[in-house]
Structures are given as structure tokens and as C-alpha cells.
Design a protein around this nucleic acid. Structure first.
Length: 293
DNA sequence: GTGTTTGTTATCAA
DNA sequence: CTTGATAACAAACA
């Protein structure tokens, strides 16, 4: 599941290949979540240049050489953005073998889940794959982008704003489970199910606890846990549990560091008691009943 | 056929 | 207005 660390990994990868690239042709295949429509989008992008790639929460933002226009990509649950040079050589001079790509994405590109293909004047190709068809592509103007960002996204875990005081403030008045609160993108941008469970484990807090019930020390522990887990996950290039791959079609390695997510029935890495799985905020939720209070 | 997977939004209730 | 709970969406898999 692409959460903040996964989208950030893809952004950093694509930035190396796509800044300065010019759209040559765009093919939209079996993809309904395209605004303002496949034909119009293809027409408007042709010949335009990518100026920069940004990220907000789990949203990837491409700034274009069209004044005040931006192309948004949301991967939702199973979206992948995979870039290939035509000569199969990556920027660093390392070749991406057919084997490593096959292993990561289950075959050559495009595949049956390829929903859109962007071909650049450099000869590079960007494949947008999405098994579940939840992902979207949206072309927006600057005012609309500004509104989307301010209405739907709270502080990023790496922001100065993401402080003990801020968390204490948003937790104090909320009776919802702490897990639901930290998953709310309007309050904290970028956490999803995996990192929410991992952060609560690191902070020794049970996911179903009412947010308002957290003590000051627990709020601090959670703030620090979120920041450190997000940083470590970015270093590991994200978590590939099922579907996620980076822009080279390769897996992220943070799956090796997961302490509780999808480890129900296994021993807690701290106390060796069994990890349990429940449902909180409508989501599969994993925790150690001994370590987390 | 059933339940499960999750990011986001719609809908409804309070 | 806010908050919170729940379903819905999509496709695949065990």
C-alpha cells in the first residue's frame, strides 16, 4: 500500500528521470478516473514539459510547463508508477535486467494492469499500473490545487508543525480511537494502515484507545515514533507487502523491519508474546497486548 | 459463495 | 458547523 514513504520513494526516483522531460504521447487504457477525460488530457499534455515533482501526503504532484497547471497522481491501494528508458539503461548506468523487473511486477510492461502509458521525447516510458482501479490522474489549476492541499491535508510528519503541542491539541478533544485519528489525512498527512500500526507499537499504545485518553508522555512517544518510522521506511525505500514497487519496478525492504503489521500469531519482537489482530476504525489492526497499553 | 485486503469519500447520526 | 461510525468502491485471492 503506497503510504508516505512509498510515494516519496517513487517521487525521488521519478524526479531523476522526469524533470525536463517532455510528453510525446499519452495512451489511456481502461482508466475511468482521469480528469478532465482521457482525450483532452492526452491533447493538453502533448509537447509539455515536467518542471518538478512534489508530494503531499500520499499525493504525487507534477508541475508542468503550462502556466498554473499540475498533474496529480494518487496510487490509492494498488497503483504503480514504473519508468523505463527505451535502451533499458537507468540513469546511474546500471541496466535493469528483464529478470529483476519480472520478479518485481510479475512480467513485462505493459501488463494487464497497465491503465496509462506516458511516452517522453527522451524515449523513456512511464507506466501507470493499477490492479484495483482506485487510482486517479487529475489535471488541476493552481487555485484548485491550493484548495485541495489546504482542505484535505494536515501537517506532514517531517514538518516543523508536527509537534508535541499540535498532537496534544488534536488528541485532546477527540474520543475516536487513536488509530483513526492518526490515519485521518486532514490531521496528519501520509500515514496509512501499515505505519499507523507500527507507530502505535513503537509508542506502546493500543490502537483502540480514545485519542483524548493519551497522557503527555504517550503523545510525545507517538510523535517521535511516527517521525522515526517514516524516516526509516523512506531509507528502506518503502514496504512491499503485496503490490507496491518503486519507479524501477523494485520492492521496498521495510517489510523486513515490520514489528506487528500482518504478524498476528507470531512472537512480539520485544516480549515474545503473541501479536494479535483485531479491527479498529474498520481496518485490520495488529498489536501486542502485552507491550501496548 | 464468503471473507479479507485498504485509501478515500459518501452518507448518516448526533 | 464538527465529530464519528459505517458502508461503498474496486479486483483478486485463500
Amino acid at each position: 500500500m503506497p503510504e508516505l514513504p512509498e510515494v516519496e520513494t517513487v517521487r525521488r526516483d521519478l524526479k531523476k528521470y522526469l524533470v525536463g522531460a517532455r510528453f510525446q504521447s499519452i495512451k489511456i487504457i481502461d482508466f475511468k478516473n482521469v480528469a478532465p477525460g482521457a482525450t483532452f488530457l492526452a491533447k493538453i499534455l502533448q509537447g509539455k514539459e515536467i518542471i518538478d515533482l512534489r508530494r503531499r501526503g500520499k499525493l504525487l504532484i507534477l508541475d508542468l510547463s503550462i502556466p498554473d497547471k499540475h498533474l496529480l497522481f494518487h496510487l490509492k491501494m494498488t497503483g504503480q508508477l514504473i519508468y523505463q528508458q527505451s535502451n533499458k539503461l537507468l540513469a546511474g548506468g546500471h541496466s535493469l535486467s528483464e529478470n529483476s523487473l519480472s520478479e518485481a511486477v510479475g512480467g513485462k510492461l505493459p501488463n494487464k494492469y497497465t491503465r496509462a502509458i506516458f511516452i517522453f521525447d527522451s524515449g523513456g516510458t512511464l507506466y501507470f499500473n493499477d490492479l484495483r482501479k482506485f487510482a486517479y490522474i487529475k489535471l488541476v489549476g493552481s487555485p484548485e490545487l491550493k484548495q485541495i492541499l489546504s482542505n484535505n491535508y494536515g501537517p506532514e510528519p517531517m514538518d516543523r508543525e508536527f509537534s508535541l503541542d499540535y498532537l496534544a491539541k488534536i488528541f485532546k478533544t477527540r474520543r475516536a480511537p487513536i488509530k483513526a485519528v492518526i490515519l485521518n489525512q486532514k490531521l496528519i498527512a501520509g500515514l496509512g494502515n501499515i505505519y499507523a500500526d507500527e507507530a502505535l507499537f513503537a509508542a506502546k499504545i493500543r490502537p483502540e484507545r480514545a485519542a483524548e485518553s493519551l497522557k503527555k508522555g504517550e503523545v510525545l512517544a507517538l510523535q517521535q515514533s511516527i517521525v522515526s518510522i517514516i524516516k526509516r521506511a523512506i531509507k528502506a525505500r518503502g514496504t512491499t507487502f503485496r503490490n507496491y514497487v518503486d519507479a524501477q519496478g523494485k520492492k521496498g525492504s521495510f517489510v523486513n523491519y515490520l514489528q506487528v503489521y500482518q504478524r498476528q500469531g507470531q512472537a512480539c519482537p520485544v516480549c515474545s508474546k503473541s501479536i494479535i489482530k483485531t479491527k479498529v476504525a474498520g481496518r485490520g489492526t495488529h498489536y501486542c497486548p502485552h507491550c501496548q497499553k
